[in-house]
């Protein structure tokens, strides 16, 4: 590849800021994260960005690459560069801390709000629950458990953009896995937490989350499941 260069334009600053241009040598099998790391190590140590695992497990390195939210460690430059150029922004829908770093607090607060943690009623002295992997409910739960919490769906979702109280795809995807977990005992409180216009009913099924999820999950499908269960619970008077 020799002296080929990538023209990189990166957002610098907080909510207010400007783009700064860099030139980075083009390498084979180079990822967008490699590009950002090169800039920070070789050209401009003041650049802030987040990463940890570099292999698509931790969900830290999500950024907006040429207008689309992506996990940068698993995104090859060859796949996304337009005329040899990259424009990098922080994730949308989250407050910018600095440069490519956003404050993920609201995102995870909404997981808590959607009761996104397991609630069991067994003690360590009881036998382990035997859950068949082929059971339909377990399949439904298993389909959504690989979420790495990268925030790409949340950044992509227009409903999050329009309604700051909307829980968002990741939090509700998590709720759906737990509602289908037969060991979990917080079904009704969880359904109450994700119901209504700020919860599952707010989803417009645009499927941006499905399109962009790096783990190929289907949060829209999960939310559709929540809509059905939440509706049934309201009609039965189980939640109000």
């Amino acid at each position: 590849m020799g002296a080929e260069q990538i023209n990189v334009s990166i957002w610098r600053g907080g909510e207010e800021g400007a783009y700064q241009a860099y030139q980075v040598p083009r390498l084979e099998s180079q990822t967008v994260l490699d590009v950002v790391t090169y800039i920070q190590r070789e050209l401009d140590p003041s650049l802030s960005y987040r990463f940890a695992c570099r292999v698509g497990v931790c969900g830290s390195c999500a950024m907006t690459v040429n207008g689309k939210a992506r996990w940068t460690c698993r995104t090859h430059v060859s796949r996304v560069a337009v005329n040899g150029s990259l424009t990098l922004n922080p994730l949308r829908n989250l407050p910018v801390v600095k440069d490519l770093v956003v404050d993920m607090e609201v995102f995870f607060d909404k997981w808590e709000k959607a009761l996104g943690s397991f609630v069991g009623d067994k003690t360590r002295d009881e036998a382990l629950a035997a859950v068949s992997p082929s059971e339909p409910k377990r399949k439904e739960a298993s389909a959504g458990i690989e979420c790495i919490g990268c925030g790409i769906c949340y950044a992509t979702c227009d409903v999050v953009d329009w309604n700051k109280d909307y829980l968002g795809p990741a939090a509700m995807n998590r709720s759906w896995t737990l509602i289908n977990d037969e060991r979990d005992v917080a079904r009704l409180p969880r359904l109450a937490a994700i119901s209504g216009d700020d919860g599952c009913l707010g989803c417009h099924s645009q499927q941006g989350c499905v399109e962009r999820c790096p783990k190929s999950l289907n949060p829209t499908g999960a939310i559709a499941g929540l809509k059905r269960e939440s509706m049934k619970a309201v009609l039965k008077g189980e939640i109000t």
Partner: peptide, 15 residues
């Protein structure tokens, strides 16, 4: 943001 109840929101959605 929302002042109406879950019940109202769900019934409107269903309607």
């Amino acid at each position: 943001m929302t002042t109406s109840s879950l019940r109202t929101e769900t019934y409107l959605w269903l309607a």
